[in-house]
Design a protein around this nucleic acid. Structure first.
Lengths: 226, 226
DNA sequence: GACCGCCGTGAGGAAAGTGTGAGGATCGGC
DNA sequence: GCCGATCCTCACACTTTCCTCACGGCGGTC
C-alpha cells in the first residue's frame, strides 16, 4: 500500500513518514502542491494525505488537479477548523478531513477506512489465450474471433479457475479433484477427464491437440497462457 | 438519495431528519440498533448515519451487522472523542466518524463525500436493450416501440438494479437474495425464480427465450445489455 | 509384440436446477 | 371492511448439468 504525503512543513512531513513507514506503508513525500501532483502522477499512490495550507499551489488546487484524472482517496489535514474550509475541501473532492492536532492512531484508522473501500473493486482477473478471453470475476468467456459468448457450467468454471490460478504450474489430479469436487471425492478420475475435455472443446482452437490445457500423464494437468 | 438515521435520542433524530429532508434526502429513522438493522434491510439506504451510543445493540454491533451483507457507507456520530472509540468504529467498518457537537454543514459535506463515490456508477445507470429503455435513477421503464410506460414493483426494481449494476457479470443467487430480500432471507430460491420471470415478462421481447436476463444453472443470473 | 496403465471419446440415464401455472397470504388506500 | 396490488407458496413439467459405463488409442515395459 503506497501513500503520498504532501505538507510544506518538513517536520510534519518527517513525522508522518515515520508513522506510515512503521505501519508498513510505502511512503512518497511532496513539499508543495506542484510536487504533490507530479508525485501522484509518477507513483500512483493508493491514498493521498494532503495538507491544506501549502503556499503557491494550495491544497484545494491539488484536489482539483488530482480529481481531473484520478479517483485516489484524499485525506486532508488542516489547521483550520472552520466549517467553511471543511465543506470546501470535501466538496472539491476530498474524502476525509482531519484537523490538527490529531492523534496518529485516528489518522491511521481513517486511512485504513478509505483504502478498504477500494480493495473489493479489484481488477478483472483473467487472461486471453488462443481464440478466447476469460474473465474469472465476471465469469465470462468471449471468443475473440467473432465476439461470441461461450457458456461454461459451474463445474467447468471451478476446474478452469483452479488451473488458471496456478497458471504455468503443474496441478496434480488430487488437487484438482479436491478443489472442484470437495475433499471427499471419489478416487476414480473419470469425470476429471470428462471436464478437461469439455473445457478443451470450448476453449481450445484444436481440441484434438490442445495448446493451453495440457495433460501430464500420471501426474495432472497444466494451464499455459499466451 | 435515501439516508438511514439511527439515534436513540428522539430530539437529535428529529433535528437530523429535518436537516436531511431540507437537503432533499429521503429519510428513514431508527430509534435503536435492532431497528437500524431491520430498516436497512427493508429500505436499502444509500448512506447510514449512526449514533454510536445506543443502548442494547450498540453502534459497533450495528456496523458489524450491516457489514455482514452490505457495503453501504456508514457515518458514525458519537459524543466520545477518545481515539480508541474512533479507531474501533472505523476498523469495524465505518467510513467516517464525527464527534458531537458538530455543524450540520460539515455533516452534510461528509455525507456528500461518502455518497459521491457511488454516484458515477449510478449516474450513468440505465440502459436500452431489446424493446425497452431502463433508467435506474428515475426508476422508469419505457417501451421504445410505442413509448408506453412499464410499471415495475419495488421488489422487481431491486432485483433489476442489482443485475444491471453488475451488467455483464454473473451474479450468484446468494448475492441476489441478499441484495433484494436482506441478509436473513429464506434459503430456498423459489421467489427469486418468480421475480426473474416477472422481469422477463415485462422487459424481454420473447420471455420464453430471454436475451438479456440470462440463467446460469447452478450459479446465478446475468444481465447482458445491448 | 503382447501386456498394462493411462488418457480421450461417445452415448445415455440420474440428479439437480429452472420455468410455469394457479392460488393463498399480506399490505395499504379508500 | 373491501378491494386491488404485491408478495409469496406449492406442485409439476421441463431443461440443464452431472456422472457412469464401456470402448479405443497411445506410449511405456518386459
Amino acid at each position: 500500500m503506497k501513500v503520498l504525503i504532501a505538507d510544506d512543513d518538513p517536520q510534519i512531513l518527517r513525522a508522518l513518514s515515520i508513522t506510515f513507514t512503521a505501519s508498513d506503508y510505502d511512503v512518497v513525500t511532496a513539499g508543495d502542491g506542484a510536487a504533490a501532483l507530479r508525485r501522484a502522477a509518477e507513483h500512483h499512490p493508493d491514498i493521498v494525505v494532503l495538507d491544506l495550507g501549502m503556499p503557491h499551489l494550495g491544497g484545494i488546487d491539488v484536489i482539483h488537479g488530482l480529481r481531473g484524472w484520478s479517483s485516489v482517496p484524499i485525506l486532508v489535514i488542516s489547521g483550520r477548523m472552520d466549517s467553511i474550509d471543511k465543506v470546501q475541501a470535501l466538496d472539491a473532492g476530498a474524502d476525509d478531513y482531519v484537523t490538527k492536532p490529531f492523534l496518529t492512531d485516528e489518522l491511521l484508522a481513517r486511512v485504513r477506512a478509505l483504502t478498504r473501500r477500494r480493495l473489493p473493486v479489484r481488477e478483472e482477473a483473467g487472461a486471453a489465450f488462443g481464440d478466447v478471453r476469460v474473465d474469472l470475476v465476471a465469469k465470462s468467456v468471449v471468443r475473440t474471433t467473432d465476439g461470441a459468448d461461450i457458456h461454461l457450467t459451474r463445474t467447468e468454471w471451478r476446474l478452469l479457475e483452479t488451473l488458471m490460478l496456478n497458471a504455468g504450474r503443474l496441478v496434480p489430479q488430487e488437487i484438482l479433484l479436491t478443489e472442484v469436487w470437495g475433499p471427499q471425492h471419489v478416487s476414480d478420475s473419470g469425470y476429471l477427464r470428462l471436464y478437461i475435455r469439455q473445457l478443451r472443446k470450448k476453449l481450445e482452437r484444436d481440441p484434438g491437440s490442445p495448446r493451453h490445457l495440457l495433460t501430464e500423464a500420471g501426474m495432472g494437468y497444466r494451464f499455459v497462457p499466451g
